[in-house]
Design a binder for these strands. Structure first.
Length: 110
DNA sequence: GTCGTGACATCTT
DNA sequence: AAAGATGCCACGA
């Protein structure tokens, strides 16, 4: 009995994000058909570290491309991971965000 | 069981 | 056009 919550749905999409790519809350929310529920998407990421399988929350950032999640990760760990995947991140700010940005409604266009 | 807060975004005035 | 207010779901106390 899989608890199909909005969270679970977000995790599913986030796990479909390839390495070196990033997405925004609104994009995922929109993909799920709940644009205004962007807040819930963000909260899902918070618990993402407590969910199975682990979700690459470091690939999910806000609309500005800022690693706002780093606050919960406990440091710059998130930025280091992104750089490790080929994403340039400076001071919790993704560079070339337009290039690494991936839209689930486009790439994952179901 | 109820109230409030939270990795944001969108809609309205 | 910009600024302000609202909305959504889940979890914590």
């Amino acid at each position: 009995m899989t608890e199909y919550n909005f969270f679970t749905n977000v995790y599913d999409v986030a796990r479909q994000i390839p390495s070196g790519r990033v997405t925004s809350y609104g994009a995922i929310a929109s993909y799920l058909g709940a644009k205004r529920s962007s807040r819930v998407v963000g909260y899902a990421m918070q618990v993402a570290g407590s969910v199975k399988p682990p979700v690459p929350a470091h690939r999910v950032v806000n609309r500005l491309g800022q690693l706002t999640a780093a606050t919960h990760f406990g440091g710059n760990t998130m930025a280091q991971l992104l750089e490790s995947e080929g994403v340039t991140v400076i001071k919790d700010q993704i560079q070339d965000f337009d290039k690494v940005f991936l839209d689930p409604t486009v790439e994952l266009a179901l």
